[in-house]
Design a protein around this nucleic acid. Structure first.
Lengths: 161, 161
DNA sequence: CCCGAAATCATCCCTTCGGGTGACGCGCGG
DNA sequence: CCGCGCGTCACCCGAAGGGATGATTTCGGG
């Protein structure tokens, strides 16, 4: 099951921040004018004035931009697959190596689900004797002498589920 | 295996951007002065002037801040667990429900690995007859009539690996 | 102290399984 | 055409497995 998390913080609303900065800006301008009338009666006061405002608001803008964006900077998508279906995949290479024919593998599978030779014969539409010969060959190829042993071997080699 | 990706883009260097914005600011101030000398000979031109600069640089700052931060805004951590060992855990509740005794479960496990009654007897230091009685009870409790069937049932109920 | 669950072993009987051997038909490739 | 692998079936025999029943011991709880 995927698990997503996104960081977010409460803090002041956007509306109140705009209001605050507006007032701050107004106050700043008034302050600057006052300063100018006091002791900034220079020729190029206009450049200094503009430069100050520019620098201040640029910094403010950067800070504001950062602050507004920050909550989005850690979008973490964590995807964890827990014990999926893990569908069985037959190890065909091993089947080949063991020299098992399709029919033999089929019989082996039926043995694995706990059927008797008689039941297997019925399900595969062949005689019980045929099942026995097939299984004999299977046991021989897998090096098993009992059906439970054959099933165990086949499972280890991923021949059957 | 975890797989991390972080978006990044080439673009202009920070140094060249600062230079660019500095020149832009200088040019802007010159432009504003020119405009003022042409037709902005008002009483409150100083407020308009400052406001314009403030607004422009604030916007510039916001844009700059956003631009600098943007590359970090998509940090995606994708963690995928690929069907690990998935160690076997016995379903003890089911064992209880089946009424299997420890000894019976032990015998069942030995059957599952393909051993004959004789081999099981040797491994558990009991007589073959004992193994048979234990297994008889197991088959009875699991509703099985053959050892392969019992193994299959036990596997489904997660009584054995 | 007795009961009952669990573990142990045994004996009888029948079924199932596994090994060995032989045989027949079919299709494919040398 | 012949050989070979595959699938099919049959018979025999001994070993293994499974069902039923009974007996003994040990241990823990009522």
């Amino acid at each position: 099951m995927p698990n997503d998390r996104m960081s977010g913080r409460p803090g002041p609303t956007l509306r109140s921040q705009i209001l605050l900065y507006g007032l701050l800006g107004g106050g700043l301008i008034a302050l600057l004018r006052l300063i100018e009338y006091r002791w900034l009666v220079l020729d190029h006061s206009i450049e200094i004035y503009g430069g100050l405002i520019a620098a201040l608001f640029a910094g403010l803008g950067v800070w504001l931009g950062l602050r507004l964006t920050r909550p989005r900077e850690t979008v973490v998508v964590r995807e964890v697959v827990v014990e999926g279906g893990a569908a069985f995949v037959r190890n065909d290479a091993e089947v080949e190596a063991m020299g098992l024919t399709p029919r033999e593998l089929e019989m082996l599978e039926l043995v694995a689900v706990g059927l008797s030779n008689r039941e297997i014969a019925a399900r595969a539409f062949v005689s019980e004797n045929t099942v026995k010969t097939h299984l004999s060959r299977v046991f021989d190829k897998l090096g098993a002498s009992r059906r439970t042993q054959a099933v165990q071997r086949a499972r280890q080699l991923r021949l059957i589920a």
